[in-house]
Design a protein around this nucleic acid. Structure first.
Length: 573
DNA sequence: GCCGTTTTCGGCCCGACTGTTTTCAGTCG
């Protein structure tokens, strides 16, 4: 059985929790957490790497000891140190740590003094008002625990970026209108454009802050005020999304922006560099002794530790600091580099508009080309095209191109189903008349890793195969990716001259950021496409570009930054 | 547990807010 990276990360995280509850050295605990984060951010299978004798010690902040622990988990699924910990402390104490307001000290007290081993025990103790009797706890703390216990019932805590963006835009507009507000930025993982965000961090500079704070905590969307201070308040919106507002002096804007954009691991690394240079870096600036020497802009903060500016999308402590030091940060792809969209649907299958409407919308966005990729016959629920209907579609697009007079070129294409045996669901005789084929898996998602990988590789053997659509098949927060050996798929794509898609649908974002990085490392270019089902969906492209940027991709790594001629050349296999 | 232009030992990011306290510990980001 192959151990997945996430399973390795989970074990390290659990070990960190139990070590912390047991009162272990805080820096050792941090090392485990940092390792867990690094591991979960990798697209390559660590189990495979370990098998191939890779040196995990080369990963950032993973030393010899941690590398051995990871290798042990990867090989055996077990971590002896974790087993030992679980002999002295119940494993489920780790779950208590997830509860907001409960940290290691309180969990330890709950366990030692009240014999609480798990969430059920805790619920019972809260109901019997036994928690408030503990030293250091009180009525209020017990009530907070009760609330969080009630709320966590089946609730997914992370919000997809697009939904977060709607909320952020509304709040930002309302707060930005207040007199005296100078600058307002939504920072945090939102600014780093993570595919999901846990909360929103809004950073404001203003001459007079109290009006902003009042407007914020009194906003009609607010369900609950978690905390409220002069410079920082936290609320929960009716949607369940938590929002923090921080008020900062103008002169500290850059330092605050850096601080609140995170990631935490990135910040710690930067501050550590500050310490090495005798500097103290916090949200108010960069200080030597008590003198502020920088902080108005983020550039100043980075410059104080001899680094160039690092884009927010890269600040995940996944090697960006080392890259910056060595002057090899990527020139990240920009939205305006996109010359066309290579995946969209029309009324011919499950889209909502005509090919013409989609083409016009593409032209309005300045695109040189747009591929119409309606579903094919295997996907009956979407009204997939059979051979005859695809032939009609081809003729329709030929006529449409004549009518458009070169304002935009509509590419003849289809989103072709990859059948379980790896064959495509329309004959080559029709597929070879298309400009390109986006090929996707839509059924039999539960096949084994070996079967699914073979299925894709066999499909790529077909010379008409151009781009693997939504390669992982995941739906964020709803459906796990199907089991696929992405490294083998990428190697296969590299050999055969195929491409992988970065599907820009906010619910998909598939490839992921880590997958993009792996694709680049393995020399496979991607297409960033929206999978639009209506003309407005074409705007989703920005989510795809953000994901690609998080994956360190440059314009050259993305085929639809090419001119039509250059694209046609790339598509020839 | 990690790491090295001060170091192979001895450091390790830093401040705000809350609740339970009578000056601070715990938690969070």
């Amino acid at each position: 059985m192959t151990i997945h990276n996430q399973e390795i990360a989970d074990r390290l995280e659990r070990a960190a929790d139990l070590l912390e509850i047991g009162g272990s050295d805080a820096f050792r605990v941090r090392a485990y957490r940092q390792a867990a984060q690094t591991v979960s951010g990798l697209a390559q299978s660590l189990a495979d790497q370990v098998e191939n004798g890779a040196d995990l010690n080369e990963l950032p902040d993973i030393g010899q000891n941690m590398a051995e622990k990871i290798a042990t988990i990867a090989r055996t699924g077990e971590l002896p140190q974790l087993d030992e910990l679980e002999e002295t402390l119940p494993a489920q104490l780790s779950e208590l740590m997830q509860l907001s307001g409960l940290g290691p000290k309180r969990v330890k007290a709950l366990h030692q003094d009240l014999g609480i081993d798990n969430l059920d025990d805790l619920k019972q103790a809260v109901d019997q008002q036994r928690v408030r009797q503990l030293e250091g706890f009180g009525r209020k703390t017990e009530e907070t625990i009760a609330e969080h216990l009630a709320r966590r019932q089946g609730q997914e805590t992370r919000t997809r970026l697009m939904e977060a963006e709607e909320v952020a835009d509304t709040l930002a507009r309302d707060l930005d209108g207040i007199e005296g507000v100078q600058q307002l930025t939504v920072a945090g993982s939102f600014r780093r454009r993570k595919e999901t965000v846990g909360d929103l961090d809004i950073l404001v500079t203003a001459e007079e802050g109290s009006a902003v704070m009042e407007r914020f905590t009194g906003h009609e969307e607010v369900r609950e005020i978690v905390s409220q201070g002069e410079t920082r308040s936290t609320v929960v919106l009716r949607s369940g999304l938590q929002v923090d507002l921080r008020l900062m002096p103008e002169a500290a804007y850059g330092a605050a922006l850096h601080y609140f954009t995170g990631s935490k691991a990135h910040n710690i690394a930067v501050r550590r560099m500050g310490v090495e240079r005798g500097l103290k870096i916090n949200e108010y600036g960069v200080f030597r002794d008590d003198e502020r020497i920088a902080g108005r802009t983020e550039e100043e903060v980075y410059a104080s530790v001899d680094l160039p500016y690092i884009e927010p999308v890269l600040r995940e402590h996944q090697g960006e600091i080392e890259a910056a030091q060595q002057d090899r940060l990527p020139q990240l792809i920009e939205l305006d580099a996109i010359r066309g969209d290579l995946h969209c649907h029309t009324r011919a299958s499950d889209g909502h508009e005509s090919p013409r409407a989609m083409a016009e919308a593409g032209a309005e966005r300045g695109y040189a080309y747009l591929a119409i990729t309606d579903h094919t016959q295997n996907l009956t629920v979407a009204g997939g095209l059979d051979e005859a209907r695809l032939r009609e579609q081809i003729e329709r697009i030929d006529r449409l191109n004549d009518e458009l007079g070169g304002r935009i070129t509509v590419l003849k294409s289809a989103e072709v189903d990859i059948l379980a045996d790896g064959s495509l669901d329309l004959p080559d005789s029709i597929l070879e008349q298309l400009d390109l084929c986006v090929c996707s898996i839509h059924d039999k998602l539960d096949r084994s890793r070996e079967q699914q990988t073979e299925r894709v590789l066999r499909a790529m053997d077909n010379p008409n195969f151009s781009i693997l659509g939504h390669p992982r098949g995941r739906l964020i927060g709803k459906r796990d990716p199907y089991d696929l050996d992405l490294e083998r798929v990428l190697a296969g794509a590299a050999e055969r001259g195929c491409f992988l898609e970065v599907n820009a649908q906010p619910k998909r974002l598939d490839l992921s950021d880590a997958d993009c990085r792996l694709a680049k490392e393995m020399g496979v270019k991607v297409a960033i496409s929206t999978d639009a089902h209506s003309s407005t969906n074409l705007d989703y492209i920005r989510f795809g570009v953000d994901q690609a940027r998080r994956g360190w991709l440059e314009a050259d790594d993305v085929i639809n930054t090419r001119s039509l001629e250059a694209l046609r050349t790339l598509l020839k296999r």
